[in-house]
Structure formats: structure tokens, C-alpha cells
Computed example of a mutant assay.
Amino acid sequence: MNHLSQRPLALDCLRSFEAVARRLSFSAAAEEMHLTQPAISRQIKGLEEELGAPLFTRGTRKVELTAAGQALLRTVAPLLIRLDGTVRQIRLARSRHQVSLTTFPSFASLWLMPRLVAFERLHPSLDIRISASDRLVDEDDPELDLALRQCRPERAPASAIRLFGEVLSPVIGAGLAAAVARGDAPPLRQPADLAQHTLLEMDDGSAHSSALAWPAWLAAQGLDRLQPKRWFSTNYTHQQMQAALAGQGVALARLALVHDGLARGELVEPFGPACRLWSQHDYWLVPLGGSQPPRPEQQAFTRWVLDQAAATRQAIGDHADPDSLAHAD
């Protein structure tokens, strides 16, 4: 095989090629690129020599793409669009203050997003970028400032700050609660009554999901063998809560994420606080970026999250000692 066929293509002339191909004019491309027409022609000729194939047919009054030129344009045009978009993002990030964070989808949907309006009012010129993913990231990830995660205390990084605990309790939507009160649905006076209802389950396949699922709660109530009328499983907590709001059954809610819905009356806790089960998992704020000192906007967002977390602790009855909120080795 000819060694020239394996040599990487020089990239400096691709933008000129794309301009000529888009405008079908060497002179128009030269004007757009702020170059002379002979300079554009030399770049295209060099590119054709690199490829070993003509890219344009040049007539007296028009220029047309050859088959090779059309094939190259199909690849080059979207690449340049992506490149220009990335450059704009980098320049924008350098010219504006931004906080980038990662968290898992249900936390973003149920706890963080509804509260961000208040933060945006306080900091209208600060941009927020959220990566909602279950994927864990490295603590020295340069693209991210913060992580909001859930885990047991012994698995939290040394730099992690505890936000609030995980407490589980059955909840139903207001519509189903009204039906129960009217007698149009089976009663929910005691946990054993769950046998007559559909139980909404969240099963994301994670190692700790069983500790936050119905079997663990039922075992704590002495109802290990209870079988509901039906199981309804979803992948994410926010899907489980949507099903509860729609009246599709009883959800085992993570109260830290849904206490606002309880306060508004959209959700009802049929057995009250007496049947709440505290998990060994907690929610944490983890600073990222390695050894880089936090920027002022990162510090402002962290303070705001901690204030919101304090309100959540009060709402769910999390009375942990404030001195223990910073994770200790």
C-alpha cells in the first residue's frame, strides 16, 4: 500500500475547502475568509494533491463539486460546526461565571431543579450547568465544580459535606387519598392494609437499591411476607413519584426529595411520621476540581445548597449535630 494513503490529512485548508464548497465560488470564499483568491486556490490545490483526487470541476463561470469533493464535504461540514460550537462554549465559559455540577437524575428533578429559580434570582449573571447522571466522576475532574450524591457515610470522600439523611415513608397522591377517605378505594389505616394496594417500586439495579426498597420497609414493620395487590416498578425515583401523583399506587418515598409535595398537599403520608424508616444512606455535597481553590461563584452556590439543605433537614426531622455535617475520616 502506498504510504501516502495512510498519511494524516493536513487540516489548515479544510475551512477554505468548506467555504468554496458552500459558496461554489473561489472569489466569494476568498472574501469570506479574508484571503486572496490565489491563496484560496493554492490551498485547494494542495488539498487535492494530499488526497490524490480533484475536489472541484472549474468552469468559466461556475464551480462544481466532484464525487470526492461531495464525500469530503459530508464529513468536514458537521465537524466544523461542532468545532465552532465548542469554541463558542469555551469562550463563553471564560467570559461568564459558571458553576458545573453533577448529580443523579432523580435528585436533579425532585430536589435541585425546583429550587434553582430562587438561586437564579439571587445570582442572575451566574450560569449553571447540570450533568444529571448516575455515573460517578473523579474528584479531580476539571470540567466539574461540585457533585451532589447519595451514599453511606463510610463511602463519602473526606471532603464531602453532609446535606441531610435518607428517610423512607409510604405516600400516595391526593386523588387516591380522597378516594380512600370516601371509601372508593381500600383503606390505608395501618401498614397491613398495603396488601390491598399497588406498591410502586424503584429498582435502578444499584447495589444499595434494596436497602431503600419496599422489602426493607415492610420488614421493619414486621410484614416480611406481605404481598401487595400488584407491583409497579420503575427505574428512577422521580418516575415512581409521578406514578404516585397520578394515583397509580403507594410509593415508598424518599422524604428529603418530596417533602415540598407533602407540604402542598399533592402527596399524603397515610401512616404519618410513626412509620418512617431512617436509612443508613445520606446525601452529600462533594467539591471537585482537585486541589484548585473554589472560585467565588462555586462558593456562592455551595452556601446556597447548604442553606437549602438546612431547610430540608428541618422539614424531615433530621436533627443531626451540625458539627457532624462535614464528613470526618
Rank of each mutant, 00 (worst) to 15 (best):
S209F: 07
G173Q: 09
A256I: 05
E166A: 09
P270W: 09
E266Q: 13
Y236W: 09
T237Y: 13
G261Y: 13
E266T: 01
S169V: 06
G272H: 11
A192Y: 04
L218V: 06
A216Y: 05
M202V: 15
R230T: 03
F232W: 12
R189V: 06
P228W: 12
S233T: 13
M202T: 13
V171W: 02
S210T: 05
G222P: 07
S169P: 00
Q248Y: 09
L168V: 01
G175R: 15
R254H: 10
G183M: 11
A179K: 10
A263S: 08
A253E: 06
L218W: 06
M202W: 03
G222I: 14
A174N: 09
Q240M: 13
S206K: 08
L257R: 00
S209G: 00
V180H: 03
Q221W: 14
A192D: 14
R264L: 06
E266K: 05
G165A: 12
R189L: 13
V268C: 10
L262T: 02
A244T: 06
A251P: 00
H197K: 05
Q221M: 15
W231C: 05
H238P: 01
P191M: 08
G247F: 15
R225N: 14
R182W: 05
R162H: 07
G175Q: 14
G175C: 03
V180N: 01
A246Y: 05
D204P: 03
A220N: 09
A256S: 12
L194E: 12
A185E: 12
G249L: 06
Q221R: 14
L188Y: 08
H197Q: 04
Q248G: 02
G175Y: 02
S210E: 07
V167P: 00
Q240G: 07
G272K: 13
G272P: 06
L223H: 04
P191T: 06
A263Y: 04
A220V: 00
L194R: 11
D260T: 06
A219P: 00
R254N: 09
A243M: 11
D203A: 14
G175M: 11
A219M: 10
M202Y: 05
A213L: 04
A220I: 02
L163T: 02
T237E: 15
T198V: 15
V250S: 04
P191K: 10
F232D: 11
A185G: 07
L163Q: 04
V167S: 05
A195N: 07
P215Y: 06
L168F: 06
D184R: 10
L252M: 02
S233E: 01
D203G: 00
S233P: 00
G249A: 05
Q240A: 12
P186S: 10
G222C: 14
L163N: 08
Q190G: 00
A207E: 08
S209T: 10
A256P: 01
A246E: 15
W214L: 07
L262E: 10
K229D: 14
G205H: 14
W231K: 11
W217M: 03
G272E: 10
T234R: 15
N235D: 10
R230I: 02
Q240W: 02
M241P: 00
K229P: 00
E269Y: 03
D224Q: 15
L212S: 02
L194S: 09
Q248T: 01
L168S: 01
Q239N: 12
H259R: 09
Q242A: 14
P191S: 06
